[in-house]
Design a binder for these strands. Sequence first.
DNA 1: GTCTATAAGGAGATAGAC
DNA 2: GTCTATCTCCTTATAGAC
Lengths: 199, 199
Amino acid sequence: MKYPNTKKLITEKALDYFSNNGYAGASIRQIARAVGIRESAIYNHFKSKEEIFLAILSDYKSKSLSTKILNDELLDELDNPEKFLQDFAKRLVEFWNTPKEKKFIRLLLMEQFTKVGSVELSVTEYVNELRGICRLIFSEMVKNNIAKKYDPDILAEQFTAPLFLIRTEHLSREGENNLNKVLEIVRKHVSFFWNSIKI
Amino acid sequence: MKYPNTKKLITEKALDYFSNNGYAGASIRQIARAVGIRESAIYNHFKSKEEIFLAILSDYKSKSLSTKILNDELLDELDNPEKFLQDFAKRLVEFWNTPKEKKFIRLLLMEQFTKVGSVELSVTEYVNELRGICRLIFSEMVKNNIAKKYDPDILAEQFTAPLFLIRTEHLSREGENNLNKVLEIVRKHVSFFWNSIKI
DNA sequence: GTCTATAAGGAGATAGAC
DNA sequence: GTCTATCTCCTTATAGAC
């Protein structure tokens, strides 16, 4: 990969503008200006505004959540379920707090009801990946008599929903200790949750 | 009020377009066409596109949630807490499912990160109204030894978050029995929640 | 209060020189 | 690969007749 990589720069700046102003509210002109080139030069890399959007999406979809959140270190903690859940939630929130992921979640929330070309962004699809991981975890816990015999789907929902709402609510404010505040709320949530399901 | 009320019709159609395409994605031209007048006629009622947006917001903010959800009939059920919570959640979801409220939630989610004029839409503010009502309810339950001694803030969060996520996730799909499906998921959530806090 | 006409500028996109 | 120049269309908004 050579420097400067204009194409990559375009998608980065485009993500900035899309996630702040929405797809319709961002213009090729702004993006080109931010990149430091003229509008017409954009069309050497993408044939349309829509294609920039699709490139951003495709880049995002190429990564899977579980590989970014779950690692062996974390899975070793499964014999201490409360600690595991706390650390799992913490890792998740920290991941959601990375700059690129924050921008993408903002874009997702903004564009979930519009159609850009043939593509529809789905919050459900986004959350479902996490629900799937949680379902596996809670299935194991129920099977091993660590957790009460609830339907794993319900447990996944109860664990996931407050996390996601807390996270999305803290996307706007840009306070310094924003993350610490979120982590504190999340810690209380996980604590309540574990208290509700432990045997 | 005389008929036809063009001004009201404009805000209604504007809400349609804003909530489907976003503020930036909707045009005066579309709105005027939907109303059945020319663009220029719009400016007899509103001095700018932004003012239409602000009128929609101001109309919305004039109403309070608690008066629409809580009534005496419901409050009489407080001695049967599980039934109360189930009916409370049901009323809430049904309210969220009214056409105008659905449009407004869509608009809120889409425009929460943009600034239209000097106004910022806040999801937190929206959810906080519900959190406040829940906090009162759960404070009472804890005080009267109906519920375990949890922090009412946590209880409000745990009760509210899944409801809101479920509701927002079902705003896109327009299935017939969509509402029944949502109500079923909500019923399970409330059941789990009550099971977790009851003494 | 709505119309026609029009202004003034921004949008996405293309052509062709370098 | 970037530039200047340009096209065409759409945007918000205004002026003035009816």
